[in-house]
Design a protein around this nucleic acid. Structure first.
Ligand SMILES: NC(=O)c1ccc[n+]([C@@H]2O[C@H](COP(=O)([O-])OP(=O)(O)OC[C@H]3O[C@@H](n4cnc5c(N)ncnc54)[C@H](O)[C@@H]3O)[C@@H](O)[C@H]2O)c1
Ligand SMILES: NC(=O)c1ccc[n+]([C@@H]2O[C@H](COP(=O)([O-])OP(=O)(O)OC[C@H]3O[C@@H](n4cnc5c(N)ncnc54)[C@H](O)[C@@H]3O)[C@@H](O)[C@H]2O)c1
Lengths: 251, 251
DNA sequence: TACCGCTTGTGAACGCATGCACAAAGTCGG
DNA sequence: CCGACTTTGTGCATGCGTTCACAAGCGGTA
């Protein structure tokens, strides 16, 4: 899985080496936000904006300006005091930190409702995540192209993932199949998995899993609805001020 | 615990009132995990399991046992020392905390690739999130039923959301339309929004937004790939220690 | 060149979340 | 009824992430 970018004798520039050392120290939460900043900056760049202040960028990204500056400081000092940041410079530095200077081949497993949507989605290839393989267990689906890629049978997963150097596996199968699919991806050398099935996957330490769980998202929203409803109720009815165990909740 | 003899003649039981007071104090991160516990517990319940220890449950949920116990302690003390937790009891308490004792009507806006998948998905209604309305701007889609629900035109959004008491709005439109759709949902009284469009939505304080951003998820995975690759590289090569950060950008 | 106003970068304080470790509280066998 | 054993619930320490506040640095201006 070495670098596939062959320019120059050395594989990394000094700036890259510096970035990479820094990468270790970037908080997980900041990484997620950097991805958002990158999208906002890309949009600005396309609109012809060349410079931006932390205040403007933080507004557009929906975060605190101080937090944004701290996040950017994790990747280095590329701003100009009194002026702001050069959009292009920031874009290229964030891209490098996020490892977007190389493409990450994506495989989608489970070409049902969700798998179809993902395979058809045009937003990934343009951002460095080409979908290069689709898998399903259903014989009727095998061979049919979805979003331009033919569906392969799940049994071919190891060979094809190796061959196409898949680095991200997306699981969109029913929950009972998810763990087995995950195991197959892992044994095919895939080290990153994005899981849509509402199942907790067991993986070795060297594999990174992120889950997208819509039911959980909705339940969190539900929790906030309930909390809000309570607040309204206790305000209108009158709060006796006593929680359980005599804890005083509100003044 | 759970004392408080009832002067709760209203719609809430004493236990509910106690829960609701606690809800205020539950950390956001714990709420997300409670939703996961709930799913695991529901599965156990269906499999006929009636009791579970924090150790077992934490394994199944993929978290630390101490963290699980702390999370559960936020909602009250419903375990039995030396034994564990009663599955049904835990399920009902978590459901109540998450506000799942009432149904939350869901509207999906943007019936394209993703919207179709969401509308067809059978996993929501069974969990208390019935999809009761679909909207799109495309006249060709209006009137066609998807997943059993006919698509309505976006212009009807206010009336229909009010009428069907929609509490969660799901945005699956292209990015440029997302803010405008969001504004319409808000003015229709929807206070919870789940956003799939890669856009930062601006909403009033009383509206809760959660976003699902697949590109961001992939970029986080990409970051970890890069980090891992660097570690491997720096172990084999060693660090040159030069911290000089020239503004070297690859042409 | 010297000054002024603006914006970055970051040290330091704070608050939230995690994980440990153990007393309290229960069960069960005898 | 007792004592050994099991598991919960939680105080506490630790670490991570966020926020504040301000000195340092830069461009513009006279
Ligand atoms: N559709 C949604 O909107 C939605 C929302 C939330 C979560 N999910 C989750 O995403 C997953 C997929 O949902 P869906 O609606 O697309 O389901 P689906 O039933 O439409 O599609 C599942 C696909 O997986 C294939 N499959 C089954 N076993 C397989 C295996 N062992 N290997 C490879 N492929 C296999 C099936 O043939 C089918 O094509 C489910 O776990 C679901 O819970 C979906
Ligand atoms: N499909 C995916 O897998 C995927 C993945 C990640 C993110 N997304 C995001 O989800 C969103 C939807 O993706 P998609 O692939 O379903 O797109 P799509 O183009 O297939 O569907 C968008 C739908 O929204 C409708 N629409 C457009 N403007 C509207 C408006 N003002 N009001 C109501 N409806 C409107 C269109 O008629 C269309 O039916 C996009 O923002 C996309 O970036 C999709």
């Amino acid at each position: 899985m070495a670098s596939q970018r062959g320019e120059g004798e050395t594989t990394t520039t000094p700036a890259e080496a510096a970035d990479k050392e820094r990468a270790r120290a970037i908080p997980e939460a900041a990484v997620a936000r950097l991805a958002v900043y990158l999208r906002v900056l890309s949009g600005m760049s396309e609109s012809g904006v060349t410079a931006v202040s932390s205040e403007e960028l933080s507004q557009a990204a929906g975060v605190n300006a101080a937090k944004l500056r701290k996040d950017l400081s994790y990747i280095g000092s590329y701003g100009t005091r009194g002026v702001g940041y050069d959009v292009e410079v920031l874009v290229s530095h964030i891209e490098r930190i996020l490892g977007l200077t190389r493409n990450h081949s994506v495989a989608v497993v489970g070409i049902g409702n969700l798998g179809h949507a993902l395979a058809n989605y045009g937003g990934f290839p343009g951002r460095g995540f080409p979908v290069t393989a689709l898998f399903d267990v259903d014989a009727d689906l095998v061979g049919i192209p979805v979003g331009g890629i033919p569906v392969n049978h799940i049994d071919e997963i190891t060979a094809i993932c190796r061959e196409r150097e898949v680095s991200i596996g997306v699981i969109a199968t029913p929950p009972p199949a998810a763990q087995s699919v995950c195991d197959r991806l892992v044994s095919a050398g895939v080290q990153c998995i994005l899981n849509f099935a509402p199942v907790v996957l067991q993986v070795p330490d060297n594999v990174e899993v992120r889950k997208v769980d819509l039911a959980v998202e909705m339940q969190i929203l539900s929790f906030h609805v309930a909390r809000r409803a309570d607040e309204a109720a206790s305000v209108s009815v009158g709060n006796n001020g006593l929680g359980v165990d005599g804890m005083v909740i509100r003044p």
